[in-house]
Amino acid sequence: MNQKKRSANKIYSKNELGQIQLLSPVIILVTVFSLVPLLRGIYLGFTDYRLGDAITFNGIDNYIQLFQDDFFWNSFRIGMVWTFIVTALQVGLGLGLALLLNTKVRFVSFYTILILIPWATPPIIRGILWRQMYEPNTGALNVLLTNAGIISAPVNWLSNFEYVIPAVIVAGVWGEISKAAIFLLAGLQTISADLYEASTIDGAGMWDQFRNITLPVLRPVLAAIISLTFMWNFNTFGIVWVLTQGGPGGMTRLPMLAAYEEGFKYGYIGYAAAIGNVMVIILSLMLFMYLRVQLRERNEA
């Protein structure tokens, strides 16, 4: 490592100006179109800004209002339900699929190609696919259930208060299982087969192997995937937009949909930014707690 560093300096003297020149497009683009807007967005969350009006700082008024706003609480409640259930199902089912694919039975590469396709489907198309599955009169689900004699009259899954949340969650999990499975499979493939062979000789069963070999090695990858998917799921927008637009009666209005409505439908930019700020704080807190537990477990192990 040290030798490498020295030889690098032999070719190119440590020229920081040259580096900044090469990096300047990135620095400019990120600063102008990402960093500054983000800081400004955070600031707008403390103003009563409406598009076209003057911007007035109003301290924590937005947050006091949010605290009393049912619209906001409903949206965060469903946001939490959605995020926890989709993440758990996605990672759990993805891990199961990854373990199956890692057994290296025949046709695995063929299976892998098929499994990639839902992940490759754009979020909007995922919504369209599932709308056609749930369609009351001609949709696949009602046809199957009617033929099986489970239901006698067609169910309108996406406008029924009882079924809409599970229906949207199934559609959300569908496109995301492959992603978790493929990432976890890559993690599993870093585990050397010798470890398993040695433990088989020692008489360990499959469950022991999973607990004592697979899980410890997989832990960092698993923690990374859980944190990332948690963030992505909390910020979901497109698929739910197509499936229900947040309805019926706001039952599936995830936080991003609520912020979009406030900001771009009603024009309450400041209030929408405040929702964004609360989302960041909640996400950061959850990730912080989760990663702290992870670190403690790793230190104890």
Binding site: S34, P37, L38, G41, F234, N235, A259, G263, A273, G276
Partner: peptide
């Protein structure tokens, strides 16, 4: 940048 919801960036960017 992964942790920030796009809505926060989008509003000022739109302006």
């Amino acid at each position: 940048s992964q942790i920030f919801p796009v809505i926060l960036v989008m509003i000022p960017l739109y302006v």
